[in-house]
Design a protein around this nucleic acid. Sequence first.
RNA 1: CGGGCUGUAGCGCAGCUUGGUAGCGCGCUUCGUUCGGGACGAAGAGGUCCCGGGUUCAAAUCCCGGCAGCCCGACCA
Length: 469
Amino acid sequence: MASQSVLTPQSQDFPRWYQDVVAKAEMADNGPVRGTMVIRPYGYAIWELMQQEMDRRIKDTGAKNAYFPLFIPESYFSKEAEHVEGFSPELAVVTHAGGEDLTEPIVVRPTSETVIGEFMAKWIQSYRDLPLLLNQWVNVVRWEMRPRLFLRSSEFLWQEGHTAHASYDDASAYARRIHNEVYNDFMLNVLACPCYLGIKPPSERFPGAINSMTGEAVMRDGKALQMMTTHELGRNFARAFDIFYQSEEGQAELCYTTSWGASTRMVGGLIMVHGDDNGLKVPPAVAPIQAVVIPVRDESDVLEAADRVAADLRSAGVRVEVDRGRGSFGRRVTDWEIKGVPVRVEVGPRDLAQGLVTIVRRDTGEKATVGLGALTKDVPLLLERIQTDLLASAVAHRDERTQDVTSVAEALDAAKDGFARLAWDLVAGEGEAELNTQAVTVRCLQRQDGSMPESEDEGGLICLVAKSY
RNA sequence: CGGGCUGUAGCGCAGCUUGGUAGCGCGCUUCGUUCGGGACGAAGAGGUCCCGGGUUCAAAUCCCGGCAGCCCGACCA
């Protein structure tokens, strides 16, 4: 039997590896328009589980879901100077509709601060209306120069939260709560993707924000991927859209607003953090299929046993599927490995004769034989262990790929295959420009202890720099 | 927008130099044998050779003009 690689070429050529996995795991295809993406049912099932987990956390902070229009009058964008400048190059604009040229072009939303700002101004009258905490799950369009499936597509799905507050402190505290209790908690406990949390340097800030917080994950090849972002918008958008409230003292006051988002990019991040040359490794928390039962022979007693095993696991709360494919054993196993199903249960006559089945972990390849009666206890436990082990190995990989350095030159060297951590004072200004010449960017600023600074003015900050997707 | 490259079956490609019946691998369909780590045999289906024009008895192949896509930089969730 000739050995043959599932995925070629391998990790040396990472984007190509990535495309192969996405295609073979039946996650997504390129859409008919350059940069758009078709998400296939398996990829969407992962996204749905992510949505559920994140939506629950968002609602726990008191935010409510709503919906705002896809089409935004172009004039809304010009109301905030930095915002329009930042987004103009990547807007898709409708100029023609109903068989006529439009008098005012319509922008397909790249993000919804502007429309939502317009409505916040109408909805907020009194301090009693605050905080106003809104979220929406929608598609947005950004005409990027180099699209890549999941990581940066022209159209993508996301959650965008928009809130208005009476004070800077309240806005700031809420933004930090979202960043920690929603985003970081989700990344650690659901996606098992540890992120460096920090603030963006001014050069990388969201257009119109006074502060942008980020979570930067370390991909398998050492490059960075921004997994989510939370912006403090100060009073910039409130001023542009007249979002006032009447205070207890009867004064008209401008609101402080925030916005925060996380997108289908997380699916791509998941693949590139946990995947290997055999395909995906999907953490059990977001695995549409947590265990696949494979009858090793197409014989009725084996098939029946497989069905019983699946029924038992299902009743134990495991998302399970029986593989009734006709291919050879090896083919079927490989196909499930590519899809990253965390646990494989092999049901065959030799084991069955002794009342046993074989269970195999996708993440380590480790095999064990267990009694039929123990499965409903062992598989859920194993799924929990895989979830925590995936996080542990991602943390270890992140740390291996991060070097402490003491100069921009050393940082450039370290950024060839990972992150570099150094004093922000060494980088700010000319150092950042020098890094940029080698496609290395400042991913985030942190305090010495790794915690989130109030702002870049704090002094004594460190920065993490890397190449990014 | 700079610098490289490619358009031929669903996917990956050969054929083009030197014009002459549209090919290969994978995948797909049917039947049979298989099935504890990527099986095998037999038979089949599938084409606007990117588009337009030119040269020629004859163009995937030569000439001219378009268009599209990919990779490396600047943008970005």
